[in-house]
Simulated scan of single mutants.
Amino acid sequence: MTLRTRLVVLLCALALLAGVATVSVLRAADRADRRDRAVPGGPAVTSGRVALSGGPGGLLVFRNMAWGPHRDELTTVPADRAGGERTAGGVKCLRFYAASGTGICLQAVRGPVQDTYRAVVLDARLRVTARYDVPGVPSRARVSPSGRLATWTAFVGGDSYVGGDFATRAAIVDLRTGQLTPTLESYRIVRDGRTYRAADVNFWGVTFASDDRHFYATLGTAGRTYLIRGDLRARTVTTLRTNVECPSLSPDGTRIAFKKRVKGLPADAPWRLYTLDLRTLRETALTEPRSVDDQPVWRNNTTLTYALPGDYGADLYTLPSDGTGTPHLLTRSAVSPTYLN
């Protein structure tokens, strides 16, 4: 084979390899493009203005889980037409909650080696007013009814509430003063009237009372969970009842909605929804037959909203809070709901 022939063969081989590479790149780009398009038959989502303020009939704001260019963005729909067309505001959150024109958005910060996380405080126009580092994978978020206090929970060990091999950290920040409590583990724990100390203490799922002083949350220790009532001024938490997780205080402050571990259920789906009367400590089993791993949201004093696994991450359901009725699908491909009146 002459030198010229060898050069021709080499050039042809290089051209063939280049063609194969080009086809591979185009196919990959096409797959990515298809992933970014809205799923046929899924909810319609368009860009627009999202504000953390209510309107006639109220608004529902949540993290959009539908595949497409607006996946993970905060979106809004009229509260009475939750399945309608969504408006996406461009801000992405893993967990979200809002009240009185203040939002807390837990975000992932993509890094070359590993992701980090942060809590971003938003005003009514979704403008960032403050940022805080979050020491693990975000799990829960809440804002007090006045908009003054914000809280978040993160997994700092493990990545699920299923089983007992996990560690969480719950933080609270006063948005008026900027005072941050990085972990509720710094508070004095009162159990059965006595100070309690243990190395395995975890807190998660904070929910605020309307006085901007008291709150409720879950305390986990020694293989048990407790509903606790916290006092921000005294920096104490007091146990009220066992087997309560991810509490959510009703708008009138009289009841807690929560998930409870029920004996006999599968280890990977152990919870059922309940409500608890805070005056009598009498609990009511709700009619949702599936395991709910969520911190429910009260739409009003009679109706709860919560997430269950769906085809694209999660779907939202509603249920009466008095133990009657049946679950109702609110909207698909959504999580972290907030009602704004």
Score class of each variant (00 low, 15 high):
S210H: 13
Y97V: 04
W271D: 07
G178H: 08
G41S: 06
R95L: 05
L26G: 08
V109Q: 13
R235E: 12
T238Y: 03
S321I: 04
A28H: 14
P309M: 07
Y274K: 03
Y226D: 06
D200Q: 12
Y312S: 11
Q179Y: 11
R233C: 00
R176G: 12
P138K: 02
T177S: 15
G193Y: 09
A217W: 00
V134Q: 10
A307L: 07
L126E: 02
G323K: 01
G157D: 11
V45A: 07
S139T: 05
T168M: 10
V292Y: 00
F166R: 14
A307N: 04
A28S: 14
Y312G: 01
S321A: 15
T76I: 10
R110Q: 14
D212E: 13
T287R: 15
L276A: 06
G158N: 09
S100F: 02
L7N: 09
T153M: 06
A170Y: 00
T102H: 01
D159S: 14
R261K: 15
A44Q: 13
V120T: 11
P112N: 07
R127I: 03
C105F: 02
L276K: 06
G19E: 09
R35P: 02
T129D: 05
P138A: 04
A51I: 13
G90S: 10
T275I: 05
E283L: 08
L329P: 05
S321Q: 04
F155M: 09
G220N: 11
G90W: 06
L308W: 06
F203Y: 15
R332M: 08
T87C: 08
F208M: 05
V25A: 13
V23E: 11
G41K: 06
R255L: 03
L286H: 01
D231V: 11
D115P: 02
S333T: 12
L316G: 00
L60H: 01
E185G: 14
G41H: 06
A267H: 10
Y317I: 02
L3T: 14
S250W: 03
R35M: 12
L330H: 03
N64S: 15
V335C: 09
R261T: 11
R290S: 12
P40V: 05
Y339V: 04
E283S: 15
D268C: 03
A334K: 00
P135S: 08
M65K: 09
P337G: 04
S291D: 11
G223L: 11
A119Y: 00
T153E: 12
I172E: 01
R255V: 04
T302P: 02
A66N: 10
L276I: 05
F258I: 04
T195M: 07
C105P: 00
D174I: 05
R332S: 12
D133N: 13
E85P: 15
P43G: 10
S139L: 13
T239P: 01
R71K: 14
R27Y: 11
V9W: 13
R241H: 09
T302L: 10
P320A: 04
V201H: 07
A66M: 10
R194D: 12
A88L: 04
N202E: 13
T151R: 02
G55P: 04
R169H: 05
R125T: 13
G178I: 10
V121L: 14
T238Q: 14
G310M: 10
L14R: 07
I189G: 00
T326W: 08
A141H: 01
W204Q: 11
G264M: 09
D315Q: 08
I228E: 00
Q114E: 15
N243R: 02
L286I: 07
